[in-house]
Amino acid sequence: MSVLVFAETSEGKFKKSAFEVTSYGKKVAEQLGTNVVVLTINSNEPTLLYMYGAEKVLNVSNDALRTFNAKVYANIIKQAAEKENSKLVIIDSNANAIYLAPTLAVNLSAGYASNVVALPTSTSPFTLKRKTFSNKAFNYTELTTDCKVISLAKNSFGLVENKVDGNVEEFSPQLIESGLTSTSVEQTTGKVTIADADVVVSGGRGLKGPENWGMIEELADVFGAATACSKPVSDLGWRPHSEHVGQTGKPVASNLYVAVGISGAIQHLAGVNSSKVKVVINTDPEAPFFKAADYGIIGDAFEVVPKLIEKLKEFKANNA
């Protein structure tokens, strides 16, 4: 018996979440008194995983797997779980991971728990704390099956260094047919995405119009942040739909969320509750967002944001 972790790569490089799930998998393996095996596909540098406790890394190198396919990937993970006699598979909550997870669960006849935010509160029965009701609450879920699949919510566990002397084993699974063909991928490169960002700077209707987003982008730039917006802003076409966060948009689980000119409606908060620290800049002291924030500035964005950019640049220069 071992714990199997799937560590995702993007163009050969590990995502930060790959290190997070490895850190988590190592701890769960300790709880269960077993070892952890980390599976990765087309990684340039699988040994990086040793830093987070990966005793054994299975690396699949195969050009046919350059493009993600949920069914094919799920089948590879299943083969790895069988080979390693793993009854517990841990994945992250990136778009690809949550896409393949239900298929994997059916392949393994496993119970599946998504949105897991902490180590198992008990291993027998196997009980997990999960986010639910669009981040307004948690639940404790018992997995009653022999095999289990869990997906760890982003940024909920963090990276835990735990250097081990690991080894990498090449793994050559059988590839199945999927019936689904990828014909093209359009991806903006070089820009931090909301999903991967440590910091997200977000603008609302308080910014009055798309022409005022220059300062939001500049602030994001200084933070090394992704930009986001409230729903009306994308509905009005001021910003692309891909930036809309909230209950009906993207979830944000960054370390820092800076909300400028956003009132803090319940549906907006549902999407940003999982961010660790929230800063709100709003002219209205009664804006509901202040109740959900950690730090607040009552003030006009058009005055506060330029000052913040300037001071942050100074700070970065002094702390470089």
Partner: peptide
């Protein structure tokens, strides 16, 4: 069923927001 929910828990109440003066970023 493969899973069952044992209990729920609400988000812990948040500490009050710390206010910073707009002239003192």
């Amino acid at each position: 069923a493969a899973t069952s929910i044992i209990s729920f828990e609400k988000q812990a109440a948040k500490a009050a927001c710390k206010m910073v003066d707009a002239d003192n970023v």
